[in-house]
């Protein structure tokens, strides 16, 4: 029968309203996805940094008067490497220490008599913990001063900074999600007002509120999904671009790289679905409230 081909949706498409809403929702999803990817990157980077800091300690050898500091550092590194819980110990020469001091003292050649500390990078064995105070005890009788830095101070700072970035990212995602939900709720109310004839006709032929609500819910779920897909794919492209370019976002988030791994990919994939669900729920609540208020 020919009429079957023209069986229409009960809720007609409204491109005039849907397109701007699609654009706004896509932009919100794009920003939320980027924030999510940024937070995920911060999370991963912070974990890497924390692991590095807890796996290493640095021993400073302060040169004694009339002594060869480089030789002292080499000898100390050999002794330290023998301690239980130490995987390796590597002495860094004066040249390497000078490079570390360049930001403060400049690139000029330092006077030979300037007592530049020598550093020993000690990598710890993750299986066997190093006994507290073992390095200090080992070098306690040495004819030079020794400072052991277990990075505890930095680890706490990095953990705090990383947590701040994570929560900031999650907060931005939450705020953008709320904004998207509010925009969709507003749009759903406008859509219901524009198609009140449909709602009223359905109501009068015996459709319960849930039937009418479902029409709008499905409409906005699809709109949210489409917007989510567009926004998330754009965010994915940008995120991937930043990760292969070295991560300009690192400058913003005080992180070394903009990480876009499996988690980032998951965020992009999940964003479309979450966007659809947020839109559907928001539209459902908005329409349901209006119907209850109108038809008491």
């Amino acid at each position: 029968m020919s009429q079957k081909s023209r069986s229409g949706d009960l809720l007609p498409p409204d491109r005039g309203r849907d397109r701007p809403l699609l654009a706004v929702a896509a932009i919100l999803v794009f920003l939320a996805s980027l924030a999510g990817i940024g937070a995920a990157g911060a999370w991963q980077a912070a974990e890497g940094w924390t692991a590095q800091l807890t796996d290493q300690i640095t021993v400073q050898i302060l040169p004694g008067t009339g002594r060869d500091a480089d030789a002292d550092a080499e000898a100390a590194a050999i002794e330290i490497a023998r301690l239980p819980g130490v995987a390796s110990a590597e002495a860094r020469g004066r040249a390497q220490s000078e490079r570390l001091l360049e930001p403060w003292l400049g690139t000029g050649v330092l006077p030979d008599d300037l007592p530049v500390p020598r550093l020993i990078a000690v990598r710890l064995d993750s299986e066997t913990p190093l006994a507290p105070g073992a390095v200090e005890a080992l070098l306690g009788d040495a004819p030079y001063e020794v400072v052991v830095d277990d990075h505890d101070r930095w680890e706490r700072a990095v953990t705090r900074a990383a947590a701040a970035v994570r929560y900031f990212g999650l907060g931005v995602v939450a705020l953008l999600t709320l904004a998207a939900a509010a925009v969709v709720a507003f749009a759903a109310r406008a859509s219901l007002a524009a198609r009140w004839d449909v709602a009223e006709a359905l109501h009068l032929v015996g459709a319960p509120d849930s039937y009418i609500t479902r029409l709008f819910q499905e409409r906005f779920f699809m709109l949210g999904m489409n917007a989510g897909l567009i926004g998330a794919v754009l965010a994915g492209v940008v995120g991937y671009g930043l990760s292969i370019l070295g991560g300009s976002a690192g400058a913003v988030f005080f992180l070394p790289r903009f990480e876009f791994g499996w988690l980032g990919l998951g965020i992009v994939a999940g964003a479309a679905l979450v966007s659809g669900l947020v839109s559907a729920i928001s539209a459902r609540l908005a329409v349901s409230n209006v119907l209850k208020a109108r038809w008491t």
Binding site: Q3, R6, S7, L10, V205, G206
Partner: peptide, 28 residues
């Protein structure tokens, strides 16, 4: 009248049956 302007005459007339959950084949 309050007919839905975007639905065909067939779909308008079938609306109460559609809302009641009847299959199209059963009422066409």
């Amino acid at each position: 009248f309050r007919l839905l302007q975007h639905l065909t005459v067939f779909d308008n007339v079938a609306l109460p049956l559609r809302v009641a959950g009847q299959a199209r084949a059963s009422y066409a």
